[in-house]
Design a protein around this nucleic acid. Structure first.
Lengths: 118, 118
DNA sequence: CTCTTCGTACGATAAACATCGTAGTACGCT
DNA sequence: AGCGTACTACGATGTTTATCGTACGAAGAG
């Protein structure tokens, strides 16, 4: 336990490196309402969240799918912490690649939510 | 004729009104490389362009499809001028709904193109 | 009227996608 | 070891999507 082994339990997840993140993939990932919601919550809380902390109107299989799309697009970073899977926004990478984009997207989403939701 | 009839030649095209433009639809429309390219060119030239001024590596049917997706998402506005179909960015509507988003997207696309293309 | 140019409509097709359910694996706790 | 929690893997399904080809319509030039 508490061994800082490289493999860290052999439960690593594949992420694209920063240079491989493609704008089209990011936009596609965010074009799904469920995934956009996930990213909004993740940005609101400034910390990492477990998958189960999101209340989504779909089954767990579907949630897994959406989280994976976000990860493979380079929008979030996932890692295991015990049995829980932590999710964090890749804000540093996104801000470096596309300065201002993430904030503009979050602002647009917030604005639309405010307009439609009340 | 030159009659300013309401139908205007019965060649009108359906556009969503500003309030009906959805962020998810815009992101989805721009998540296709072909369509992102179209929007980039449209933004670069500050004027309206005909469909045939775009050189796209697909057939005309497919082009028609992509232009329609962009129009139905509210990203571009289309109208006929003679036999040509003019395309213009709906910058006013997009800037009103999502201030700063379009510019952030275009900047991100330009940055990525610069990074990958040279 | 005819011809050409520009774009559409429709049908087909293959791929991708969102969703589910079931069965299974990994980890922590007792 | 045994149990419960958290998430995954796989297969199925119905929908959407990107693409094409062919045939068609609308407008302008001769």
């Amino acid at each position: 336990m508490t061994t800082a082994t490289p493999a860290a339990g052999s439960r690593d997840l594949p992420h694209p490196v920063r240079e491989d993140i493609r704008l089209e993939a990011v936009l596609h990932a965010l074009s799904d309402p469920m995934r956009l919601q996930i990213v909004r919550e993740l940005a609101a809380e400034r910390t990492e969240l477990t998958c189960s902390q999101f209340v989504l109107p779909v089954t767990k299989s579907t949630s897994t799918h959406h989280f994976r799309v976000l990860r493979e697009a380079g929008v979030i970073r996932q890692c295991y912490r015990g049995t829980a899977k932590m999710n964090g926004l890749r804000r540093d990478d996104l801000d470096d690649l596309f300065p201002g984009l993430l904030d503009a997207l979050l602002a647009a989403a917030a604005r639309q939510a405010a307009r439609l939701g009340g």
